[in-house]
């Protein structure tokens, strides 16, 4: 565990908490893509199956359980409890166009052709693009609430911090995983445009509004 990894995990955790609290406090999930949330649930489910057969540390186990629970909790809030506030007309991204290529790629490019390994690889590929429905929703409505922007910023920072963690681990521990690194870079790049808007607008107290 290094500082980048810890900050990355905390940023990820904070993103998930921000989202849950936002939905709970405002009693609304307007502006949030349920499609992205479904993709994240698929990501965590397929990646954390190793909860069953591998124990790494109490930290690792607890975080995995929290991510899974928060992810399914968010889906429950969006699709059941506050369904009436869900922006279904704008959340039109076709997630099969992300799931299918991620699955095919995981079958072709992986570390070992074993069920758990392929599912882990699939989760890494899918996570890298899972935010696209959310970014698509923001671009369709042309704006995002500040709290949604903070959520997106924390979620984007998480994988960016992981990249620093991987650089550190390469030098300090001779450890690297090309699949995770390449997918992590793709994931972070997808947020770049948003990062720019966040820093130039939201941090200066303005609403995140896209040019018409």
């Amino acid at each position: 565990m290094n500082i980048f990894r810890l900050l990355g995990d905390l940023s990820h955790l904070l993103a998930i908490i921000i989202l849950l609290v936002k939905i709970w406090k405002t009693r609304s999930c307007a502006g949030i893509s349920g499609k992205s949330q479904i993709l994240f649930a698929v990501v965590y489910t397929s990646r954390y199956l190793d909860l069953i057969n591998a124990f790494i540390s109490p930290y690792n186990t607890i975080m995995k359980i929290v991510f899974l629970a928060a992810s399914y909790g968010t889906i429950y809030l969006m699709y059941m409890k506050f369904k009436a506030t869900y922006d279904v007309n704008h959340d039109t991204f076709r997630i099969e166009f992300l799931i299918a290529p991620a699955a095919v790629l995981a079958l072709i490019v992986n570390h070992a052709f074993e069920p758990l390994e392929i599912l882990w690889t699939f989760s890494i590929y899918l996570e890298s693009v899972a935010i696209l429905p959310q970014l698509f929703l923001v671009s369709k409505t042309g704006e995002a609430e500040s709290i949604t922007s903070h959520y997106l910023f924390m979620l984007g920072s998480y994988r960016a911090l992981y990249i620093f963690n991987w650089i550190y681990r390469y030098y300090a521990e001779n450890h690297y995983d090309l699949i995770a690194i390449v997918a992590g870079i793709v994931q972070t790049v997808l947020y770049c445009d948003f990062f720019y808007l966040y820093i130039t607008k939201v941090l200066k107290g303005k609403k995140l509004q896209l040019p018409a």
């Binding site: 990894r5 995990d9 990820h12 190793d50 591998a54 790494i56 540390s57 690792n60 975080m63 995995k64 991510f67 570390h111 882990w120 992981y162 963690n165 521990e173 001779n174 450890h175 690297y176 995983d177 090309l178 699949i179 995770a180």
Partner: peptide, 10 residues
């Protein structure tokens, strides 16, 4: 170089 010996990341 150890490639992905243990998946200890989240």
């Amino acid at each position: 170089i150890v490639i992905n010996e243990i998946k200890d990341e989240l």
